[in-house]
Design a protein around this nucleic acid. Structure first.
Ligand SMILES: Nc1nc2c(ncn2[C@H]2C[C@H](O)[C@@H](COP(=O)(O)OP(=O)(O)OP(=O)(O)O)O2)c(=O)[nH]1
Ligand SMILES: [Mg+2]
Ligand SMILES: [Mg+2]
Ligand SMILES: [Zn+2]
Length: 574
DNA sequence: GCCGTTTTCGGCCCGACTGTTTTCAGTCG
């Protein structure tokens, strides 16, 4: 799929236009096109073939033509045209915080700066400071920006982001008279990775709150500190991290939270809608002729422009505003709806908690049942069980279940899909299990689509775990066609997993949404290897919410009886 | 470049902070 490649090209065109001095809305249009391509699950090539590119909001005739040209010829005239005469090294300069296209253009025009090394030279030898509009402070700030990108960690996983947020929020609370302190931004929306932390505080003494914030002990740089907002860079174990703080009066909490939660594109869409109604939305409220008509709560803000409340996880400008207008927003699944975790390892394979410990913890979480799914034979590296071991494990679970009240352990296994597309246990063994989970752990790029579809078509298989195999920021995943996998799962009424491990989140939000639309049921599982890993459910549920899933779309929301019925029915019908 | 229960032309979200600005541009959220 060339979707991501094309998204990068349109980003590149936008950057190039700005480096040449263009500032207008054309640039924004290219960036928006890049974003919608990133979010798209459908192959652009297919959209192009069927002449449906222009049905995607943000793609018009101009962009559609360019996509077609690139797919047909491997080239795009516009790209070559706008990047001609721009030193390739200049694009990287745009990544430096505080450095934008005007600064890069100035440095290139006046000092022939072509790359980061040139930049460092003119900063150090004093020539940059001499330029019009530049000065000592500007130079210092660019040097700080260089430190920030050179030592910046990549985007945070959700677990790190939540932990850091808790730390800074508690720190602000305990040392100021802030009324509310809450995480907003991409963390509140549950994005799979989080670029920075965005913390909103309310209080009548903003100066005090800002001061408390910038004196956070881990602070490495103070990027800015004003009357209502501040930004710091802190040193964490994984590199430098940015934290943004916004402070407003308690009266405008809702409007500020709405603003600071984003996403940017959601905000722009919302504000544009308000504009058309003769209203204005900002972080200070909703205004009609400079009179505030809403702002205390987020609900007020949405209602002021005639919409129902939109949950943070939906605020990505992926059709949620149109859905809100037509009153067809889904009632999103909540963590309290989850009755089971159906993919858990114990010390029997490569886990570090015993079966009993896991059961107790699951009961504590309010679950009524779980599925124990150890690795299979050929996963020797992960303590995979032989068929005999698995069968005696089943006996053990049967005995344990007799002694458990109002709780049930499902006999399961995470069965490897072998390189030749077979399952790792004979059918006679699989038949003994309540729940069969199949997944790829080897030979990632050997015909993965075919192998996974084989597994889906196997009459004894219920769930495909982590269907894409990606590890966020670490490896791209199998060479697999998820559209086909979803289609196959839909045909065979099989279940696809949202694996909740924060480095997986697989299926991701957009693919899980696609699966739902195709009529595929989803399992949200932690793949826990210890008691504490059970808490990863939170990330999986957030991902499910971002996929527009309701509790009816998720098998972990079924009662034990309902689930057993479903699992049995799946085997009969195949 | 995109888009249209106000438009096929003329709009395109809105505001904070910094530095070098003598009135605001650049960058960012
Ligand atoms: N109205 C408006 N709001 C913005 C704009 N840029 C950012 N925001 C709001 C919405 C964002 O979610 C919020 C925080 O900004 P961030 O740059 O931190 O983005 P976000 O947290 O969504 O993503 P991230 O993971 O940090 O990259 O501020 C903008 O241009 N206009
Ligand atoms: Mg952020
Ligand atoms: Mg931010
Ligand atoms: Zn597993």
């Amino acid at each position: 799929m060339k979707n991501q490649e094309l998204a990068r090209i349109f980003e590149r065109i936008a950057d190039a236009l700005e480096l040449k001095g263009e500032t207008g809305f054309r640039v924004l249009a290219y960036r928006k096109a890049a974003r919608v391509l990133t979010d798209l699950t459908e192959d652009v090539a297919e959209l192009d073939r069927e002449n449906r590119l222009e049905t995607v909001p943000g793609i018009g005739s101009g962009i559609a033509k360019k996509i077609h040209e690139y797919l047909a010829t491997g080239k795009m005239k516009k790209l070559e045209e706008v990047t001609a005469g721009i030193e390739p090294g200049l694009f990287a300069l745009l990544d430096i915080p505080g450095v934008g296209p005007r600064t890069v253009k100035l440095l290139n025009d006046k000092l022939r700066v072509k790359n980061i090394d040139d930049l460092k030279r003119v900063l150090m030898d004093g020539s940059a400071a001499q330029l019009p509009g530049m000065g000592k402070k500007k130079v210092e700030n660019i040097l700080k920006g260089l430190e920030q990108i050179e030592r910046a960690g990549s985007r945070m996983y959700l677990n790190e982001a939540f932990e850091l947020a808790e730390l800074i929020i508690e720190y602000i609370r305990s040392g100021s008279d802030a009324k509310e302190v809450i995480a907003a931004g991409s963390l509140r929306r549950g994005r799979e990775t989080v670029g920075d932390l965005d913390i909103l505080a309310t209080g009548s003494n903003p100066q005090q709150i800002v001061h408390r914030f910038v004196t956070f002990p881990m602070t490495r740089q103070v990027l800015s500190a004003g009357e209502t907002k501040a930004s710091i860079v802190i040193a964490s174990a994984n590199g430098l991290r940015q934290i943004d703080l916004r402070v407003v009066e308690p009266e405008t909490f809702g409007a500020a939270l709405q603003y600071f939660t984003g996403s940017k594109d959601h905000n722009v869409a919302l504000r544009t809608l308000a504009q058309k109604m003769g209203l204005k939305i900002s972080e200070y409220g909703v205004f009609r002729n400079d009179r505030r008509i809403a702002g205390k709560t987020e609900l007020e803000v949405y209602q002021a422009i005639g919409l129902p409340y939109i949950e943070p996880e939906l605020r990505e400008d992926r059709g949620e505003i149109a859905a809100a207008q037509e009153n067809r927003l889904p009632v999103l699944v909540r963590q309290e709806d989850i009755k089971s975790d159906l993919h858990i390892h114990t010390t029997a394979s490569d886990g570090s908690s015993s079966l009993i410990e896991i059961v107790r913890a699951a009961q504590q979480l309010g679950y009524t049942h779980i599925a124990i799914a150890e690795h299979s034979v050929s996963a020797g590296y992960a303590g995979g069980l032989t068929a005999d071991q698995l069968l005696s494990r089943c006996d053990e679970i049967d005995r344990l279940n007799e002694n458990l009240k109002k709780f049930r352990i499902l006999k399961s296994a995470e069965v490897d899909i072998t390189p030749d597309g077979k399952l790792d246990y004979p059918d006679s063994v699989l038949a003994r299990l309540d729940l069969v989970i199949a997944s790829i752990h080897q030979a990632f790029n050997r015909d993965a689509t075919r192998r996974v579809c084989n597994a889906i078509e196997h009459p004894l298989v219920h769930i495909i775990a982590h269907p894409s195999g990606r590890l966020i920021g670490k490896r791209p995943g199998y060479d697999i066609n998820l559209e086909k996998v979803i289609e196959c799962a839909a045909q065979n009424r099989k279940i696809l997993e949202i694996n909740s491990y924060y480095e997986r989140l697989d299926l991701n939000d957009v693919w899980a949404r696609q699966a739902k639309e195709a009529g595929v049921l989803i399992a949200v599982n932690t793949d826990a290897h210890s008691v504490s890993d059970l808490s990863w459910m939170r990330y999986g549920v957030m991902t499910a919410r971002r996929a527009w899933l309701t509790r009816n779309d998720i098998i972990n929301c079924l009662s034990l009886a309902q689930l057993m019925k479903l699992l049995a029915r799946l085997r009969q019908s195949s």
